[in-house]
Amino acid sequence: MIDLIVFLVLLALGYVFGRFAESRHFKSIQQREQEFAGVLAFSERLPPPSMAHREVALVGGNVVISVDYFKMIAAGLRSLFGGRVRAFESLTERARREALLRMKQEARDLGAQMVVNVKLETASISKGNKGQVGAVEVYAYGTALIEQALT
């Protein structure tokens, strides 16, 4: 009986604190997306012809976001029945958007207003002997087109 109570308390705490942290992170992402709206990111391999003679630099942004206890339990239950694992969808969305923001930050620090050939790499970091997902890593990278100073 005590094990069940501990499980339910951990489940409730995981839900409450995980939801709070996720909500706070999404608000931060939305604010920074507005801040970096001037740095454009495209998946096109080559820059537009008008910007072909710019200085270039490889820029990237990396993030690792861990899975909270509630998401692990919800995903475990979903695996019994199949279907979409919405708990992990929000996790990967946060990681993707955060990685892109970090890439844009690096590009802006270099004086770029555009990043082309943007790619995303993802990986899950397992924990435990059962290969449970412990965290998600996303790396965003691309080629920043930097304004050249006129001399």
Results as ranks from 00 to 15, higher is better:
M1G: 11
I2T: 10
L8Q: 14
L10P: 02
A12E: 07
A12K: 02
G14K: 08
Y15D: 01
Y15P: 00
G18I: 08
R19A: 01
R19I: 01
E22I: 12
E22D: 13
F26P: 00
F26T: 02
I29D: 08
I29T: 10
Q34H: 04
F36G: 08
A37Q: 10
A37I: 05
G38I: 00
L40G: 08
L40K: 15
L40Y: 06
A41N: 08
S43Q: 10
S43N: 09
S43Y: 05
E44D: 14
E44R: 12
R45S: 05
L46G: 06
P47F: 06
P47H: 11
M51Y: 02
M51D: 03
H53Y: 11
H53P: 01
H53R: 04
R54M: 14
V56Y: 05
V56R: 14
L58R: 12
V59W: 14
V59G: 14
G61D: 01
G61C: 00
V63K: 08
V64W: 00
S66G: 15
D68M: 10
Y69D: 10
K71W: 05
K71L: 07
M72H: 10
I73W: 10
A75S: 15
L77I: 14
L77K: 15
L77N: 14
S79A: 14
G83I: 02
R84T: 09
R84D: 04
R84K: 13
R84V: 07
R86E: 09
F88N: 08
F88H: 06
E89Q: 04
L91Q: 12
T92H: 10
R94S: 04
A95D: 08
R96G: 11
R96T: 12
R97T: 05
E98A: 11
E98T: 14
E98D: 07
E98L: 13
A99D: 12
L100H: 02
K104N: 04
E106W: 01
A107F: 03
A107D: 05
D109Q: 13
D109F: 08
L110C: 06
A112M: 03
V115H: 03
V116E: 04
V116S: 05
N117H: 02
N117G: 02
V118G: 06
K119I: 09
K119R: 12
L120Q: 04
E121F: 00
T122P: 03
A123P: 05
S126M: 09
K127A: 05
K127T: 03
G128H: 02
N129P: 15
G131D: 04
G131S: 03
G131W: 01
Q132P: 07
V133D: 02
G134V: 07
A135S: 09
V136Y: 08
V136C: 09
V136R: 07
E137T: 09
E137N: 11
V138G: 07
A140Q: 07
A140P: 12
Y141C: 06
G142F: 05
A144D: 13
L145V: 06
L145M: 09
I146M: 11
E147L: 10
A149V: 15
L150D: 15
T151M: 12
T151E: 15
T151A: 12
